[in-house]
Amino acid sequence: TTVHIGNVTYHFDNPEEAVKWAKEMAEKLGLRIEIHGDTIRVE
């Protein structure tokens, strides 16, 4: 599972961890997340 924040990509072996981490980052940055299969974007 990959999480994209701007130009930076993070890789997670556990999809649930990826979603949890992306949600925390989105809250901190005042952004929202979009999930497309195994790709998560924070925008």
Rank of each mutant, 00 (worst) to 15 (best):
V19K: 08
I5G: 01
N14W: 05
I5M: 08
K20Q: 12
L31F: 14
W21V: 02
H36K: 12
A22F: 02
N7A: 12
G30V: 03
V3H: 00
H4K: 11
V19Q: 07
I5E: 01
H4F: 13
I40Q: 01
I33K: 00
F12A: 01
E24M: 15
R41A: 04
T1E: 01
N14Q: 07
D38M: 08
T1H: 06
V42E: 02
M25C: 06
L29A: 07
E27I: 08
V3E: 00
E24D: 10
T39Y: 08
A26W: 03
V8I: 13
W21D: 00
T9I: 14
K28R: 13
E43V: 15
V3F: 02
T39Q: 11
H11R: 11
D38Q: 12
L31H: 09
E34F: 14
G37Y: 04
G6L: 13
G30Q: 08
Y10R: 09
E24P: 01
W21I: 02
I35C: 07
V19G: 04
Y10F: 12
A22K: 00
R32M: 14
D38E: 07
A26Y: 03
A18V: 02
N7P: 07
T2A: 07
Y10P: 00
T9W: 08
V8M: 14
E17R: 07
G6R: 07
Y10I: 10
A22M: 02
T39V: 14
G6H: 11
K28A: 13
E16Y: 12
I33Q: 02
I35D: 03
D13R: 08
T9P: 05
R32L: 13
H4M: 13
K23Y: 12
H11G: 04
G37L: 04
E17S: 08
V42Q: 02
H4S: 08
E34C: 14
G37D: 05
G37N: 05
I35W: 09
I33A: 05
V42F: 07
E34I: 14
N7M: 11
E24N: 08
R41F: 15
R41D: 04
V42K: 01
I33P: 03
D38P: 05
K28G: 06
F12E: 00
A18D: 00
H4N: 06
V42N: 01
L31V: 10
A22Q: 00
I5Y: 06
V19C: 05
T9E: 10
F12S: 00
N7C: 15
A22E: 00
H4D: 04
E34D: 07
G30M: 06
T1I: 14
K20S: 10
G6P: 01
E16I: 12
Y10Q: 04
E24V: 11
K20V: 08
M25F: 06
D38S: 14
N7T: 10
G30D: 07
N7G: 14
D38K: 06
F12R: 00
N14Y: 06
T2D: 06
M25D: 00
E43D: 11
Y10W: 07
R32V: 15
R32Q: 15
H4P: 01
R41H: 14
L31P: 01
E43Y: 15
R32Y: 09
V3N: 00
K20P: 02
T39W: 06
T1V: 14
L29G: 06
G6S: 06
F12T: 00
H36W: 11
L31C: 10
K23D: 04
K20R: 14
V42Y: 02
E27A: 09
L29C: 06
H4W: 14
L31A: 14
E17C: 09
V8Y: 14
W21N: 00
V8W: 14
